[in-house]
């Protein structure tokens, strides 16, 4: 049984890791570097991930390219929840890793996208170079190659967000310390 599963694992991981289709999602200046990574000098098409899907249903990889404000947070969460299951997240840039230069005194910036959704790869720098994004994708590929179908249940449950999404979308509740963000604060 384990032999069969591990063979399937190898094929499946190979397929998953080599066709990471990113979502078209860029909130600020890191988006420019992300676009540059698809263009001719850097070309992430070599790793099979130049297929930017506009619909989150068809995307596998959410590259959070830019600052996440409280106003953007519900939208980010909604996009993440709309993506179909083998889904991965790269937090690109210092803002989406930790809040970056807004860290100490900003009233509107979420200090790190991992407060909202689980993140697989952190990619600091402000903004990261396209080479760095390619490196992050390579690291994510290596991470995917370690996965197995048996541990999948635990993996999915660990990838749940700790936020509640209400129907009207403008109220966002943090489960742990009962904190309520309204849209635009």
């Amino acid at each position: 049984m384990h032999i069969i599963l591990s063979t399937i694992d190898n094929i499946y991981n190979w397929a998953k890791s080599n066709s990471l289709w990113p979502l078209t999602f860029a909130t600020s200046c890191c988006g420019i570097e992300m676009m540059s990574a698809t263009a001719s000098n850097f070309d992430i098409a070599r790793f099979g991930s130049e297929v930017f899907r506009a619909s989150p249903r068809q995307a596998d990889l959410l590259i959070i390219a830019g600052t996440i404000t409280y106003k953007m947070a519900p939208i980010l969460l909604q996009l993440y929840e709309q993506m179909a299951e083998p889904k991965y997240v790269i937090a690109m840039g210092a803002c989406s890793c930790s809040g970056g230069m807004f860290k100490n005194d900003s009233y509107s910036v979420v200090y790190g996208a991992d407060k909202i959704i689980p993140v697989d790869i952190y990619l600091p720098m402000c903004p990261p170079k396209p080479e760095a994004l390619i490196d992050a994708i390579k690291k994510l590929q290596n991470k995917i190659k370690q996965e197995s179908l048996i541990k999948r249940e635990a993996f999915i449950s660990s990838h749940k967000t700790n936020l509640h999404l209400k129907d009207d979308l403008d109220i966002l509740t943090l489960k742990e310390d009962v904190q309520i963000f309204k849209m635009g604060l």
């Binding site: 499946y12 397929a15 998953k16 066709s19 099979g48 299951e85 083998p86």
Partner: peptide
Amino acid sequence: LQTVADAIKLLFKENI
């Protein structure tokens, strides 16, 4: 084999 990888990935993708 790029399209083969894409096809396998799409086969296993979650049905929403």
